[in-house]
């Protein structure tokens, strides 16, 4: 047990070192990067990824993957936006409820199909990625939700709060904290790890795999829905063809960098938060360094692969162990 916790700590320390190194190197090249202004930009950029990453992390820990979160994000943002547009007199929380609940419903469908038919989540969510995008086009009648229709209070949530840290930042870190509580202090939370570590042994230990797995997908959907509202707040409008497209890759990159193992059973909130911060810093650093945006995807892809290789190396006791086994 202590060996495992040490490994955990080492893992997060590693990411922290990478983050510090990255900031240091970028600041050396471009001193302007090391400023409170940059910190503010990074903090504004991460909530969207962080909230969805918490969901994706739980899915990965349960040894699944959810590729549909970008479409869920778009769907929820459109659904909430339509409430805002068509019923401006309704209070803000109704829009929030619609966004989060519609996300939860779509996530529930993912979980249900995956567990009921015992299908690989990657193929199911590749299908729902397309399906949900189609549904959101149908729901919205292919019409954008204009900035005018997004309520002022929602947009201000991306700008300020009583303590001068924008609300969306507070919400995102609140969600991270709640996820941490859930995963470490609740029985179900621990069961998620158990399922991911050994799906066949989990039922023998009295864990009801199906409901827990469905719950994990539902939570991932709900959090993607919440991210949809954060999107609306931050960018001020929702477009059916743009909002959330390709978002899944950013989130998976962040989570994998955060040390969550794609083989299930391993991953922590702290690691994921650090992974998101690292990715957010990369996102902000590229334009400040004057690097063409064209590099962004290649860098994300490269980082994912490097994180995968590191993950494997750590688990197999270093590169030597890896090669020894590889030669077998």
């Amino acid at each position: 047990m202590s060996a495992i916790s040490r490994l955990f700590r080492a893992r997060e320390a590693g990411i922290l070192v990478m983050l510090v190194l990255f900031v240091a190197v970028v600041s050396l090249i471009q001193p302007r990067f090391f400023s409170t202004e940059t910190l503010r930009i990074v903090l504004l950029a991460v909530p969207l990824i962080l909230v969805a990453a918490m969901g994706q992390m739980m899915v990965l820990v349960a040894r699944h993957v959810d590729l549909s979160i970008g479409s869920i994000l778009g769907f929820s943002a459109i659904a909430a936006g339509m409430i805002f547009r068509d019923h401006p007199e309704w209070p803000l929380y109704i829009g929030f409820a619609v966004g989060v609940l519609s996300g939860a419903a779509l996530g529930f469908v993912n979980g249900l199909v995956v567990t009921l038919f015992k299908l690989p989540s990657i193929i199911v969510t590749l299908g729902t990625l397309s399906l949900y995008r189609g549904l959101l086009f149908i729901l919205s009648g292919s019409k954008q939700i204009d900035p005018n229709d997004i309520p002022e209070p929602l947009i201000r949530m991306a700008q300020t709060s009583p303590i001068d840290i924008p609300w969306i930042v507070i919400i995102a870190f609140g969600v991270a904290f709640a996820t941490w509580l859930f995963l470490t202090h609740s029985q179900i939370g621990r069961q998620i790890y158990a399922i991911g570590s050994n799906p066949t042994a989990a039922p023998l230990r009295g864990i009801r795999v199906m409901p827990v797995t469905i719950l994990v997908f539902t939570l991932s959907g709900a959090l993607a829905g919440l991210a949809g509202l954060i999107y609306a707040a931050r960018f001020g409008y929702v477009n059916p063809g743009i909002t959330g497209v390709g978002f899944e890759f950013t989130v998976i990159a962040a989570v994998v960098i955060g040390g969550v193992s794609i083989n299930g059973g391993v991953g922590s909130v702290l690691g994921t938060v650090l992974g998101v911060l690292l990715l957010g810093s990369v996102q902000v650093a590229l334009p400040i360094l004057g690097v063409s945006g064209f590099w962004q995807n290649a860098i994300y892809g490269g980082i994912i692969l490097i994180a995968l290789v590191i993950d494997r190396t750590v688990r197999q006791g270093g590169l030597r162990g890896l090669l020894a086994r590889g030669g077998a």
Binding site: R32, E37, T38, Y237, N239, Q283, V284, P287, I288, G293
Partner: peptide, 21 residues
Amino acid sequence: IAYGDDDPQKSTTETEALLAN
């Protein structure tokens, strides 16, 4: 001259970089 690729997110970070730089 900055390029936001007609993507809301990229356009946002590019503008933020303009203000910072």
